[in-house]
Computed example of a mutant assay.
Amino acid sequence: MLPTVILPGYLESADVYLPLQQALTALGTPTTTVPLRKRDWLPTLGGRSMIPILRQLDRTVNAALADNQAKQLNLIGHSAGGWISRIYIGEIPYIIHGDVDESTKLWNAKSKVANLITLGTPHISGERWTKKNLDFVNDNYPGAMYADLQYICVAGKSIYGEKKFGQWLAYSSYQQTCGEGNTWGDGITAIAAAHLAGATNITIEGVKHSPRSPGIWYGSPEVLDRWAKYLL
């Protein structure tokens, strides 16, 4: 069984993923979460470089491979963690912010990853603070680009975006990600933004975006088997 690494979503800390980590480990895939704290995201605010996150991701991946004497693993990216994972996997040097050079080598990790699972990831976005990073991802790695890597992109369908009480946040977020507010999604990421061309695209009814959300999210026991089977 391949080991698994979870990369948290934007501004999230590792501790909220502990129930998911434990559930996946119980299924037979030894799972580790990149040990991020909320403050670790601060240098990335405002659309800046994701190098601080990539450094911790790379350390965690290499440790998981060594600890399990494995050559490959599963990589799960929740929310922004999904498109950051695509930077990590890809071979093009991520030097667009001028903070590192090509010798840094916090990318080109495709040989280490057998399966990439993205949970509620906005793979497209019109947000000005994510545009530079996401343009880099989608210009260089369109869709499920690598044929020898399995992409599983999971979307939630729980909140329809409308300009009314209780749905305004979803409307605004969907509009910024996929350009359409009146659509379905997980409350933050529209279904259209969470899927990739060529990937195994899954939509799960009733799932909300965050592990902090009330009710069911992507890692809840009620829906875990819908996508975790691809790790096995």
Rank of each mutant, 00 (worst) to 15 (best):
S85N: 06
V61Y: 07
S79E: 13
N68E: 12
H78C: 11
I117R: 02
S103W: 11
R86T: 09
Q72N: 09
K71G: 15
A63S: 13
L65M: 14
P122T: 00
K110A: 10
N115C: 09
V113E: 03
E127F: 04
G77H: 07
A64Y: 10
S111K: 14
I76R: 04
A64M: 15
A63E: 11
S79K: 08
W83V: 11
I87M: 04
S103H: 07
V100Y: 03
D58L: 07
I124E: 01
K105H: 05
N108F: 00
T118R: 04
I96N: 01
V61W: 06
R86C: 04
N108L: 02
K110Y: 00
S103T: 12
A109G: 04
S85P: 06
A63N: 14
G126S: 04
P122A: 04
L75D: 03
V113F: 03
E102H: 05
A66C: 15
A114H: 07
T118Y: 02
I96V: 15
W107N: 00
K105N: 07
N74V: 13
A80H: 09
N68D: 15
W83Y: 15
A109F: 01
I76F: 03
Q69C: 10
I124C: 00
G81Y: 05
E102S: 07
G82E: 11
T104L: 12
T121D: 00
A66Y: 15
H123Q: 00
S111H: 12
G90W: 02
